[in-house]
Computed example of a mutant assay.
Amino acid sequence: MLNSDAFDLRKYVQRNSQSVAVWIALLALIVFGILRYDNFGGSYNFGSFLNYNSMFIVIALGMCFVIITGGIDLSVGSVAAFSSVIAAYLSPYGLEVALPLALLVGMTFGAFNAFCIIALRIPPFIATLATMLGAKGAALVISGASTVAVDWGSNFTNMGMNKAFDLFPWSIIIVTIVGIALWIVLEMTSLGRTILAIGGGEDASKLMGLKVNRAKAFVYIISGGCAGLAGVILASGFGAGQPLEGVAWELSAIAAVVVGGTLLTGGLGSIPATVAGALLLGLVFNILNFENGRGTISFSAYWQMVIRGAFLFAVILFQTRMTKGRKSKGASA
């Protein structure tokens, strides 16, 4: 339920002050790219960049909720691949059928994760790892381990290939709406406060009478739904369901969330900063592609994985030192 007193701008800025750096870095990279490359700020690169990275942004949004509670969801990449196959099979019935049913598929996986974690008390790492393997195997089985072409005669590809008012891809507009909705939930509702409290201490949250299990179920269902939406964008944008896609997408999502300032231990997180983190990682690789085109350097896609890992390691190291610094100050006080 919305609470007008739940959102305090000053407290929000203080709580997310660590995330300011990612916005500064993102702006600096954009300025650098515009000054260095001729077509970097062009509409084609702008639209292609947003359209492609919308998949990673929406998965990172769901992952942000999970990590805030101190959990993890390793299944999002496989769930996205499975949902893309389902969406491709449903594409003859149009986007109005394929989109909600693919979302439902993703949320079903999320509900299964929640059941394993809450009812069966399986650690999130193990539960979502099992779901990751199951979803990947199921995607390969129902697709015959090959791509599933969409129906080009329906309106299914509009979401991934068309632009609204010839400006922004429909995919990024939908993801923006999802992001705003999740931000409202996290910052302006009692459910959001419970999610943050769980990350600060689940046992203490239960003693306070908070509905911990309901909140944990919500975040995993949302994470699955976001993965399902990413699968629809994948199938709609590439013209086929992709059962072999989604590999290491969960790592990209975790990287975006952590780069955005969310603590892996839970209790602190920001939806806007997560979006900035996902855009920042995507922009790094976009700039590397432009450098490859200039012939200045020659980085393969494999080097991009190395750079992502090094970047994530540096951010986690910074987070660890910041956390230790806060704890030592608290102890001395």
Rank of each mutant, 00 (worst) to 15 (best):
D5P: 00
D8T: 05
Y12L: 10
Q14Y: 11
S17L: 13
S19G: 13
V20H: 03
V22A: 06
I24E: 04
A25F: 13
I30E: 07
I30T: 10
V31R: 11
D38H: 12
F46K: 08
F49R: 14
V58Q: 03
A60L: 09
F65W: 04
T69Y: 07
L74M: 11
S75W: 08
S78H: 11
L95R: 02
L95Q: 01
A98K: 07
P100C: 06
A102P: 00
A102M: 03
T108F: 07
N113M: 06
A114I: 04
F115A: 07
I118E: 00
A119K: 13
L120E: 01
I126G: 01
A130N: 03
M132H: 05
I142F: 12
I142W: 08
G144Q: 08
S146Q: 14
F156T: 02
N162H: 09
D166Y: 05
F168I: 10
S171N: 06
I174M: 09
T176W: 04
G179Y: 00
I180K: 05
L182M: 10
L182Y: 03
I184H: 01
M188T: 05
T189C: 01
T189P: 00
T189K: 07
S190Y: 10
I195G: 00
L196D: 01
I198R: 05
G199C: 06
E202H: 08
F218N: 06
G224F: 12
A227S: 12
F238Y: 14
Q242P: 06
E245P: 09
A248Q: 15
A253G: 10
V257D: 05
V259P: 04
L263H: 08
G267A: 07
S270P: 04
G277W: 15
L280F: 15
N286E: 14
R294D: 11
R294Q: 15
A301W: 12
W303H: 14
R308K: 15
A310H: 09
F313E: 05
K329D: 05
G330M: 14
